[in-house]
């Protein structure tokens, strides 16, 4: 008998880590964004996407609410909000 054993590339997308989020979720203000991409690069789930200024977004299906994007944003253009307050993006 075999249980979960091997994983093919991109199969880990089946793990909806967004369910881990309990306290806060990031909200992108889209005011002062300079498109430095730091939020995208630091995201441990790789769930931030975007190219242009003020056009980055988070996939909440995978966002664990760790807050790294908000912390690293040089323009403080991302804020962590309590989970109850549904911000933009969902």
């Amino acid at each position: 008998m075999f249980g979960p054993l091997t994983v093919k590339p991109s199969e880990s997308k089946g793990d909806k880590t967004g369910s881990w989020r309990t306290l806060a979720r990031p909200r992108y203000l889209h005011k002062d964004c300079i498109a430095c991409r730091m939020c995208l690069l630091i995201c441990p789930e790789g769930c931030v996407s975007g190219k242009e200024k003020n056009a980055f977004s988070v996939d909440y299906t995978f966002c664990k609410g760790c807050g790294l994007c908000a912390d690293i944003c040089p323009k403080k253009d991302i804020v962590m909000e309590p989970e109850e307050q549904k911000g933009e993006g969902k």
Partner: peptide
């Protein structure tokens, strides 16, 4: 393929 990857509480017990 990858082997021995993270199996969260949804998967570990079956392994």
């Amino acid at each position: 393929i990858s082997m021995g990857l993270l199996a969260d509480p949804d998967y570990y017990m079956e392994a």
